[in-house]
Design a protein around this nucleic acid. Structure first.
Lengths: 158, 158
DNA sequence: CTCATCTCAGGCTGACTGAGATCT
DNA sequence: CAGATCTCAGTCGGCCTGAGATGA
């Protein structure tokens, strides 16, 4: 793309700028994650959720990190094969697989955290520290507004 | 997704917040565009570029709106069938198809602009007017930095 | 010859749906 | 019964590559 010739009608759209910025961010993240064999965003999301909440059911993990139930199944199976996490039956609800992070997974999460931070720095390089904080604040409010509303208000987003 | 339980490690990532915010934005845009038969983002981008620059080759259109050459071909063919634009041979370079917006296309662009603006308002609702301006400014700097650099420093990009 | 352009065929991946089995 | 959970099979769209034909 040659941004100097991008139509003004696109440049002025928050949706378009967010789309482009998000793509750049995903590219920076994925480049780094691929170097340690991480194929998709489920890896970091799942280990982050497990690190902060302890053993959790697959359905709950999917809701927390916005990942479809079938994709959670596939990712957990793959990551279990790499000993990053393990399934265990939930003693109080036998429909569920409790997923628990292994020590290998905890170590790997540390590696991914470092790579993720490098990607943030690369992405946000043109912004001052104060601007980065303001950007994160605004983005979090947008995300909470559009995902949180559905939880509390069950969604008339007119 | 239940954002109240989103892992802090994800909430703190600009890349993750951008990804989620972008998805919300695309959803708001697509919901509205689908009501007038627009199947993808090429429609608005192509007509916006043609409105601002006049007849343009397909390759150039693709570069301006960050759309792959083969997707430009498909979109132009489809939109030509709907009389939104038309192909004409470039008299000075016969490899090229010059693409020109029709009057039908210009009218349709007006409709899409209105829908796009509605989506912006819906997306940015939690932000003040000043914050929206600051957000757009920061996003544009990020996009320029990560796409524009390739143009000036790494001329191999096409 | 090298390079750009347009087009088509096809691959890849992420997001999602449907259905069935199991369990609350 | 309704509803949640896990799993698998398969669809669908966006994004991209490769290759051929044409032409600068």
């Amino acid at each position: 793309m040659d941004p100097r010739n991008t139509p003004n009608r696109l440049r002025a759209l928050a949706t378009w700028l967010l789309f482009q910025a998000s793509n750049q961010g995903q590219r920076l993240i994925n480049e780094r994650m691929h170097t340690v064999g991480v194929p998709n965003r489920a890896y970091y999301g799942l280990l982050a959720a497990l690190a902060e909440s302890g053993p959790t059911s697959q359905a709950d993990l999917g809701r927390r990190i916005a990942l479809d139930r079938s994709d959670v199944t596939a990712a957990v199976t793959e990551m279990e094969g790499r000993r990053l996490l393990e399934r265990m039956p939930d003693p109080v609800d036998r429909r569920r697989n409790l997923v628990r992070m292994t020590e290998t997974g905890a170590a790997f999460l540390t590696t991914m955290e470092r790579l993720a931070m490098e990607a943030q720095d690369a992405l946000l390089e043109p912004l001052t520290a104060a601007e980065r904080m303001h950007l994160l604040d605004m983005l979090e409010r947008l995300v909470e507004h559009h995902t949180g509303i559905a939880v509390h208000n069950e969604g008339s987003a007119g």
